[in-house]
Design a binder for these strands. Structure first.
Lengths: 134, 134
DNA sequence: GCGTCTTGCGGGCATATGCCCGTAACCATC
DNA sequence: GATGGTTACGGGCATATGCCCGCAAGACGC
C-alpha cells in the first residue's frame, strides 16, 4: 500500500527539498543559499546578463529572476546597470559577489561530493541522465 | 564547459519545476495543484490526521502544512475539527474534497503515465530508486 | 515619420517553504 | 497539585515561484 509514495512528482519535490536543505546548510557559512549560488554562478559565467536571458538559462520565470536578483543586489553581491537597451537591465557580480562565489565553490563541491558519496558515481550519473529527460 | 549544469541540487530543482508544471496542468481542470493533491490524498488515506502528523508524513514543515491546509479548508475541500487533544486540530476530507480527489485521480494517473512514457519503465524505476536515497 | 507588434521589466496576486517565537495544553515528578 | 519540560499551533519574517497586467522602449512595415 505504497499509494502515498507513488507520485513521481512528489518524490522529486521531496528529494528536492531534502537536497536543497543539504546544500543550503553547506553554503550557510557564506550566507547564501543554493538558488543564489546558481544565480551568482550564471552571472559570473556570463559576465553581463539581462534578467530575461538569465531567466532563460536558469529556466525560471523572468519575474522570479527579477525578485531573486533584487535580494542579491540589496546584499551587494550583484549590481544592476543599464543594458544595451534602455529597457534592459544588465547584471554583473560585485567584488563582494565574486568573493562570495569564490568562498562558496569549495563548500558547494563538498555538497556535490556528499551526493556522489551517497549515490555512488554510477547512481549520480544515472540521476543526471534521468533528470535530463524530464 | 558544463559548469552550469553540474549541480545535482539545481538539476533536481529544475526537473522538479518542470514536472510540477506538468502535473499542475494535468490537474488544472479540477482546480487543485499537485501539492494539494498530495495533501488530499494523505488526509484521505489517514481519515483523520493532525497537522503535525501530516507534516511528518509529507516531510513538510508543520507551519507549511498549516498554511497549505488552510487554503484547502478555505476552498471547502478539507475541514478542520477538534482533535483528541485540545491543542490538536484534526483534518478530514469534506464531500467536496472527496469529489475533487476522485476527479483528480485519473488526471494524476495520466500525468504518471506521461512520465513513464518519457522515461520508460526502467528509467522510472531507476529514478524512484535513486531519489529514495536522497 | 506613424502606427503596430514585440520585447524587457516591475508590480500585484496567490501559493509554497522553512525558521523562530510565543502561547496554550498536556504530562511527569515531586 | 504546583513546577518544569514537551508538544501542537498560529503568526511573523524572508525567500521562492509562476501568472497576468500594464508601461516603456525597440523594431518593422508602409
Amino acid at each position: 500500500m505504497r499509494q502515498r509514495t507513488d507520485c513521481y512528482c512528489n518524490e522529486i519535490r521531496k528529494a528536492g527539498r531534502r537536497v536543497t536543505a543539504r546544500y543550503d546548510a553547506a553554503l550557510a557559512p557564506v550566507g547564501i543559499n543554493i538558488g543564489q549560488f546558481a544565480l551568482l554562478r550564471q552571472v559570473n559565467h556570463a559576465g553581463e546578463i539581462s534578467l530575461t536571458e538569465l531567466g532563460r538559462r536558469t529556466e525560471l520565470d523572468r519575474s522570479t529572476i527579477g525578485r531573486n536578483a533584487r535580494v542579491l543586489v540589496r546584499e551587494g553581491l550583484l549590481e544592476s546597470g543599464p543594458g544595451e537597451d534602455r529597457r534592459e537591465a544588465s547584471l554583473r557580480l560585485t567584488e563582494a559577489g565574486r568573493a562570495a562565489l569564490d568562498a562558496s565553490v569549495p563548500l558547494w563541491e563538498g555538497a556535490q561530493a556528499e551526493i556522489e558519496g551517497i549515490l555512488g558515481v554510477e547512481g549520480a550519473r544515472s540521476l543526471r541522465r534521468v533528470l535530463h529527460h524530464l
